[in-house]
Nucleic acid binder design. Structure first.
Length: 375
RNA sequence: GCCGCUGUAGCUCAGCUGGUUAGAGCGCUAGAUUGUGGAUCUAGAGGUCAUUGGUUCGAGCCCAGUCAGCGGUA
């Protein structure tokens, strides 16, 4: 993997760059649709490429390990082949599932013991095991096993957790060096910076990981319930420690305005379930604010979701039809809404990139936030 | 025509021996959703208890008439 920094803004930390992987280029800043189980829910691969214009998608190690399992993925020749996705894939390690499925797991110094949310069976993840699974998956960018701390945890807990994540990072890195890709293309490994909302811990976590020289750096453990301004402050603080020539990835974020604020603070990559999950709940993002497609006011509104949007949904269907599909619980509702929201997110980061390159980002961002945050 | 059963929220129904502002589920309306459960959670609106009289301190509940629906019967 190669990262090329194309432009850094003078007035803020926003940057534009290019990541080159074995499955092509990713132009940053970028938003990565989440495809946990080998599919971006409700959107097929053709539309994902041609209409949404996704440059890279996510898969999840925890979910893919439980189902279909690494034996199937290897027989298929890796996840790209299995799901017929020719562009880059990034895999999350399962660290977040350790956090979100907390009643089903136990964290130990050597790894995480957990029960499958599918059948209750017992499993044990170590950094080495996770790297092995990600080799079987064949993701272009792999995330190491980490612990995502819950918001509200004490300094002491966050400190111990950060130390564990750093210790695991060494093991992740070693396992990475001591293993090889299975499918003939290069894979790369990021480090995940933890430390909750404590600056001192963020700094020390960043320094631990940077000393190990990862291909890129993720900021984890944010957007887990802390106030938004705290999240921005932590991001701003943390990106200062990350070398300029490495991509920075803010995990799990976020709302459109969160992404723009993240870009301004020097983040290159984002992922979030919001555009897809909210789409399935009839919550749509537009350039003039958000819409709830179930609302009765759309019943006889035959205008598109967003007049300025060029996605398949907006160029072909009305709000009234979308509302009808949601009320009738038709599956096409999920598809059309997901296409639109993802198209919006990708267009958002594309425009951010363009305005970084031409120097108008800050001005553009202010204007956009005024429009999209208003309801 | 006669006999019986039933009328409570948009729908399906609870509602104790008569006792404060009549409830539930679904639906409806509106929120929430941040390294994915199409899930879930939160809040709100909505009732002349078919109708007219009566008994009672007090009636969704008891009595009578009327209307409507369902079943049986000549």
């Amino acid at each position: 993997m190669k990262f090329e920094l194309e432009k850094s803004l003078a007035g803020c930390k926003a940057r534009a760059g290019k990541i080159t992987t074995g499955h092509g280029e990713i132009k940053t800043p970028i938003f990565m649709p989440v495809g946990t189980q080998g599919t971006v829910k409700a959107v097929n691969q053709k539309l994902l490429q041609d209409d949404v214009k996704a440059q890279i998608i996510l898969g999840n190690t925890y979910h893919l390990y439980l189902r279909p399992g690494t034996d199937i993925l290897e027989k298929a020749g890796g996840l790209h082949n299995f799901i017929n996705w020719p562009r880059p894939i990034l895999t999350d390690s399962g660290g977040y599932q350790v956090f979100s499925l907390s009643d089903l797991r136990k964290i130990r110094p050597d790894g995480v013991e957990f029960r499958s949310h599918l059948d209750g069976s017992k499993h044990f993840f170590t950094p080495e095991k996770v790297i092995g699974i990600e080799r079987s998956i064949g993701s272009d960018i792999m995330m190491p096993l980490d612990e995502c701390t819950p918001f509200g945890c004490t300094y002491e807990y966050a400190k111990k957790s950060k130390e564990l994540t750093s210790k695991w990072a060494v093991q992740n890195k070693e396992a990475f060096i001591n293993s090889k890709p299975l499918y003939g293309f290069e894979q790369s490994l990021f480090g995940i910076i933890q430390g909750s909302v404590y600056k001192e811990l963020r700094e020390s976590s960043a320094k631990d990981l940077i000393a190990m020289d990862f291909d890129g750096y993720s900021i984890g453990g944010l957007a887990v319930g802390e106030p938004t301004d705290v999240m921005y402050e932590m991001v701003d603080f943390t990106t200062d420690f990350i070398p300029e020539n490495k991509p920075r990835y803010l995990m799990g974020v976020g709302r459109p305005e969160n992404i723009l604020e993240g870009i301004e603070r020097g983040v290159d990559m984002f992922d979030c379930v919001m555009p897809t999950r909210n789409a399935r709940n009839a919550y749509l993002f537009t350039w003039r604010g958000v819409l709830s497609m179930r609302n009765a006011k759309h019943k006889d509104d035959f205008s598109p979701v967003d007049e300025t949007c060029s996605c398949y949904t907006c160029t072909n269907f009305s709000r009234a039809y979308l509302r009808h599909l949601f009320v009738a619980e038709e599956i096409l509702a999920l598809e059309l809404a997901s296409i639109h929201n993802l198209h919006f997110y990708l267009e958002l980061v594309t425009k951010a990139r363009e305005t970084i390159l031409d120097g108008s980002f800050i001005e553009w961002k202010k204007q956009i936030i005024n429009h999209i945050v208003r309801n």
